[in-house]
């Protein structure tokens, strides 16, 4: 009667918890993937139309836009995607992944399953680490699937216009952006386990709009610091000519912020009453 939980049993328990999270959110995950994939497909499908529209803009109007720093000439579908497709991938993915994280942590407390989950032989540390692993796995999976969708669609629209290096760099930087946002939201929800989805939606939206502002005022030296307030600026410097260009300062600031929030959230969660 009774037994001690050895390493094999513990691994089995963690695996079953890890798989549970994906099973519970199966339908939601499929819907989000489908919607964002369709948006990406539509975005890329518009490339020939966009090129045609740009072709009929009068030269003087086109020159005025270029002088103002707004460039929209696309020599390839890759260049088009680096300018236009990033929003769907970055923001759409951020919203999905942050909501996924919110659901991971809050569902058990709002639904009442926490009494059964946190009263078994796994400790809080194991449960939280497993959920974090779920979040990281979903982030990688999402970005890989979207990369495949992009490439397939680009093959259909303009196969000769595919330039792999900047697309792979975009994939990697987008993955890093999403990992940063997922970790940040995870840390915040460790502090507010019974919150709704508001935080998960507000954070990526807010940071994205700060990015828009930062890009709009990029010529204003006094307000240039705004670009460091958002991790989305990681993605906006990639071009075909400079595929590895990235805002390392923004990246470094956010890594520090995320580690601090995660650490603080984890420490508080371990001691809180559930």
């Amino acid at each position: 009667m009774g037994c001690k939980m050895d390493k094999t049993m513990k691994k089995r328990a963690i695996n079953s918890l890890y798989c549970l999270e994906f099973n519970l959110q199966k339908k939601s995950i499929i819907w989000w993937f489908a919607v964002l994939a369709v948006l990406l497909i539509i975005e890329i499908a518009f490339y020939p139309l966009m090129n045609m529209m740009i072709g009929v803009i009068p030269d003087d109007v086109y020159n005025d836009f270029t002088d103002a720093g707004i460039s929209f000439s696309f020599d390839s579908v890759t260049e088009y995607f680096l300018l236009q497709g990033v929003e769907v991938l970055a923001l759409g993915g951020a919203l999905f992944l942050c909501c996924f994280v919110a659901s991971l942590l809050t569902r058990d407390f709002k639904g009442g399953q926490s009494e059964l989950l946190y009263t078994n032989a796994l400790n809080r540390n194991d449960i939280i680490m497993t959920k974090y692993a779920n979040a990281l796995t979903m982030t990688v999976l999402f970005n890989v699937v979207m990369l495949v969708v992009e490439l397939l669609m680009m093959c259909i629209v303009d196969i000769k216009g595919i330039v792999f290096v900047p697309l792979i760099t975009l994939f990697l930087y987008c993955l890093i952006l999403h990992l940063i946002l997922v970790s940040l939201v995870f840390g915040i929800y460790l502090l507010k386990v019974k919150s709704g989805f508001g935080i998960a939606i507000a954070i990526p939206l807010l940071l994205y709009f700060v990015t828009i502002i930062a890009l709009s005022i990029s010529h204003n030296d006094a307000l240039k610091f705004i670009e460091f307030l958002t991790p989305f600026t990681l993605l906006y410097e990639i071009t075909i000519e400079s595929p590895f260009k990235v805002n390392w300062y923004s990246f470094a600031i956010y890594v520090v912020v995320v580690l601090a929030v995660l650490g603080f959230g984890y420490k508080k969660f371990k001691k809180r009453d559930l």
């Binding site: 099973n23 399953q113 059964l116 194991d126």
Partner: peptide, 21 residues
Amino acid sequence: EGSKARENVGYVPSELSFYNS
């Protein structure tokens, strides 16, 4: 030492909530 304490415990809570699916 909660995880060790609960290794051999069977628990029935008063409020019940399961994973419905």
